[in-house]
């Protein structure tokens, strides 16, 4: 899986953003609404225009269109295809990439098993619960064997219990598959539970990068404070 670098990124949100996402890590990007978190993901995916360079393993992907970047993107509203059943949603990526029918079926079966949703194979998105939709969307994103997984506030529509359960599963799957992952959230508890590193973005700039192990060791009070106060996350991090 690639190491991702963003160099001197400029667009309507960012003014010279530099950032690195390491191979196989789960980087959490926190920040308040309008901070540019989703725009960051869209830049990595090639969904918005920007100046500067995005490099996957040192190779620029600037001229590569979204459909060639092999990025798995979990959208905030999940964006499942409502007219396709679960199996077809998951198989969509391999199908449009020209895979053979047998290999698509095999990949779909693998992912249905991995996500523990074999029983949902023939259902349509309208007949799924929030958690089930989440699993289907993740399976769909993983179906193309992405180089990078981008998660845009994927837990915002779930209730607390379900949320925690899905978080742990995503973390398990991410570690198991070793996919470089960027998770965007404004929930500090979620950031703490999921992330290997945390980046705070504000006003289109990276304000601080925190290593969770270092934070646990050096700033236990701040971390406790952050867990209870998502609004002041950025200020607290700047102390470190």
């Amino acid at each position: 899986m690639p190491d991702i670098e963003l160099k001197n990124i400029r667009n309507y949100v960012f003014n010279g953003l530099n950032m690195e996402i390491f191979d196989k890590e789960l980087l959490v990007v926190i920040g308040q609404n309008g901070a540019g978190k989703s725009t960051l993901l869209n830049i990595i995916a090639g969904l918005v225009e920007y100046e500067g360079s995005v490099l996957f393993d040192g190779v620029s992907v600037n001229r590569m269109l979204t459909d060639k970047r092999r990025v798995g993107y979990l959208f905030q509203n999940l964006a499942l295809f409502p007219h396709l059943d679960v199996a077809s949603n998951i198989g969509y990526g391999p199908a449009v990439n020209g895979s053979r029918r047998e290999s698509i079926a095999k990949r779909v079966d693998e992912l249905l098993r991995l996500m523990k949703i074999e029983h949902l194979r023939d259902r349509y998105p309208k007949n799924l619960s929030g958690g089930e939709r989440q699993r289907v969307a993740l399976a769909r994103a993983l179906a193309v064997s992405p180089q990078v997984l981008l998660l845009d506030e994927p837990f915002s529509s779930l209730d607390t219990g379900m949320c925690s359960c899905i978080r742990q599963e995503i973390k398990r799957i991410q570690k198991g598959l070793g996919i470089t992952t960027v998770l965007v959230t404004h929930d500090m508890a979620e950031a703490k539970e999921m992330g290997d590193r945390i980046v705070a973005i504000n006003g289109g700039e990276v304000r601080e990068v925190a290593d969770l192990q270092r934070m646990y060791r050096n700033y236990p009070d701040d971390l406790h404070h952050l867990q209870n106060c998502t609004g002041c996350a950025i200020e607290c991090y700047c102390k470190g």
């Binding site: 995916a45 969904l47 269109l65 979204t66 459909d67 060639k68 970047r69 092999r70 990025v71 798995g72 993107y73 959208f75 905030q76 509203n77 964006a79 499942l80 295809f81 409502p82 007219h83 969509y92 990526g93 449009v96 990439n97 769909r140 994103a141 179906a143 193309v144």
Partner: peptide, 27 residues
């Protein structure tokens, strides 16, 4: 048609033409 659905198809590797025939027109 929801923009995110179109973006999702793009990230999965669908060309513009494929998105039109497999996502936009059916929806």
């Amino acid at each position: 048609v929801d923009d995110d659905v179109i973006k999702a198809a793009k990230t999965l590797g669908a060309s513009d033409r494929k998105i039109l025939t497999s996502v936009i027109l059916p929806l």
